[in-house]
Design a protein around this nucleic acid. Structure first.
Lengths: 343, 343
DNA sequence: AAACAATAGTAAAACGGTTTACCAAATACG
DNA sequence: CGTATTTGGTAAACCGTTTTACTATTGTTT
């Protein structure tokens, strides 16, 4: 059987000093103790291999420095990169993020709500575009846990949030393709539109309108939010007269590449393709993908800054940071003749 | 200011009953109480929006059901898929995994050691091939935390582990390429060889030897463990007379595709390429990648099974499960004429 | 009607730390 | 030399639960 856990008492006993002293010294608050005593305590800690119990420590208010990151799907490279960037921003500031990949599990959602509501984490980063208002409200109300939202624009709560300029991004992509003389542009969007996508879409259409063009309904393709969805969309798109394709993200764009390839079409020969996100692989696609890059690292930083601020000043008015995206031009787009197909 | 946390006492007060009763009822152990009392308690909980404190609960021994998953790098799709498969296996059994993506952060490693050593998680899954013996030993010794290792074959601890048949896999890949008449085969391996890679490599060479061939040192390329590494390796490989390339994983293979493409070479026309892992994207590469697929879902299941077993029976003898991989043939490999280059 | 069991409930001890408030001895000060 | 301050240290309260061991009331037997 497993030996009983080493507690602070054991350390105190071994060092021949009080529990208080041990606690103080081990927490770096032991200035008042003699260096000899400190030495003995540290030695005892080492000898007994003592680690303070996480729960006991948490109970007295010395909550640990963990932050929760909630993402919808760890398989999507964008979210894994985002998680990483948050991690990189948080750790130097002494906070340790834990990733909760919800993956649509109802149990999972309930679980983290309970965790957060019961005070496990110091703060919460919700990067779940699909997260229902219900969930966010629940979290928001329950416990007033410091929380920052990102990648979702639809909720009416007044939590801090870091967003990207969706509308502008959408417009810029469309403008770019229009400047390359594309007129018939296919949109590949998910079946379930979240608010940020609606905004992005609004941007697209604005650009069209400003150029005296119109968005044709028959070039809008709704599909799943993954590469397979892209493959399926491609099959439909080749039946139309589109010359360019805008994918809702890089993951889907990758599928579009594949779908077109299977049908004997080339990029950018037959179709120009534009993605969104700038996940870490698109440099390595062939041809490299033109995409609207989200400033992932910056998002991570801002999110962490905001969250730490909120942890320190729970009552400061809420902030909203909108970051710009940047069009990264790859080899997947090409210019057409005025109104024509061939270069 | 934030109102004081709602505690069980508040609920008890509101329901006009003892704390014990509330605890019992809320934990489903309140058979003995009248249904009227139960009703009142539940109502009070709802009204006050009460959630039991995580730490207090943890302190009394009712540790939560979280498992820790330690992975080296969340950006690598293989590890994110693995994390997902573990999650999917664990949740139906009532355990909730938390992902720690170490990403080489020393602080991160220290942090989770502390967490685990102090008893936060019920069990630990260490999927870090790079994890030093030092770390594993530390974890292993410290607290006898139930732990399962995967994706690493080099450690001498007697923890449970789930592995893949590295040697056999390596041999199979080599045999396959040899059967396609490839003789000059480039290996792209990381700079830092972990034990599992050494084994895999042994398998490769065995196949060569059995065919009366020999592995030429000049076809071994050491590079980084990511797509960029693949690009770099490709630049070197084209200088040789290799006809096939074995990449240490799919991530690197993707970079090799890109590198070859930049140099005007085609796959499988000029080079047959084989990957390893079967990350979720290789179906979508062009051409689809021939790869040795790790049974990710099965790994997840076995890992969780083993871990739960160990949690229940801490002293049962340790087990080692070796799983087979499966060669998935894509379009990235092709048969050469006997000894020749052209089909 | 006495003995016993079941029912519905509670008080208090634990869990393992941190922190507050207090103390005794040694030193400094006027 | 008597008092004030510093030095080095401790006892005990507290955090919010769960759980153990009781009790008081009511109901059931014989």
């Amino acid at each position: 059987m497993k030996a009983n856990k080493t507690t602070i008492k054991d350390v105190a006993l071994k060092a021949g000093i009080s529990v208080t002293a041990v606690s103080l010294i081990l927490n770096g608050k032991g200035e008042r103790f003699s260096s000899e005593t400190k030495r003995k305590v540290h030695q005892a800690q080492l000898d007994l291999d003592y680690y303070p119990d996480y729960y006991a420590r948490g109970l007295v208010g010395q909550r640990n420095n963990s932050l929760g990151i909630v993402i919808p799907n760890i398989k999507n490279p964008f979210f894994s990169c985002l998680a990483l960037s948050i991690e990189q921003a948080a750790i130097p500031k002494g906070y340790f993020p834990q990733i909760f990949s919800v993956n649509g599990f109802k149990e999972n959602i309930d679980y983290f709500i309970e965790q957060f509501a019961s005070g496990t984490q110091k703060g919460l980063i919700l990067a779940a575009p699909g997260a229902s208002k219900e969930i966010v409200d629940k979290l928001s109300l329950h416990n007033e846990i410091p929380m920052v939202l990102t990648d979702q624009a639809d909720l009416s709560t007044d939590d801090d949030r870091v967003l990207i300029a969706e509308e502008k991004s959408g417009k810029e992509i469309a403008n770019y393709l229009i400047s390359l003389n594309h007129r018939r542009i296919a949109f590949v969007i998910p079946k379930k539109l979240t608010m940020n996508l609606v905004k992005r879409f609004t941007g697209y259409t604005q650009a069209f309108v400003e150029h005296g063009l119109e968005v044709s309904e028959d070039l809008i393709f709704r599909t799943d939010f993954n590469p397979e969805g892209g493959v399926k969309a491609a099959k439909e798109i080749v039946k139309t007269d589109a010359t360019a394709i805008i994918a809702i993200n890089d993951d889907v764009a990758m599928g579009i590449y594949k779908g077109l390839n299977l049908l004997g079409k080339t990029v950018p020969g037959d179709y120009s393709v534009v993605g969104f996100d700038d996940f870490n692989l698109n440099k390595y696609l062939i041809p490299s993908l033109t995409t609207m890059a989200q400033p992932i690292d910056l998002i991570g930083q801002k999110v962490v800054d905001l969250l730490i601020e909120r942890i320190k000043y729970p009552n400061r008015p809420s902030k909203k940071i909108v970051l710009d995206t940047k069009l990264k031009i790859g080899d997947s787009t090409r210019k057409l003749n005025e109104g024509g197909r061939v270069l």
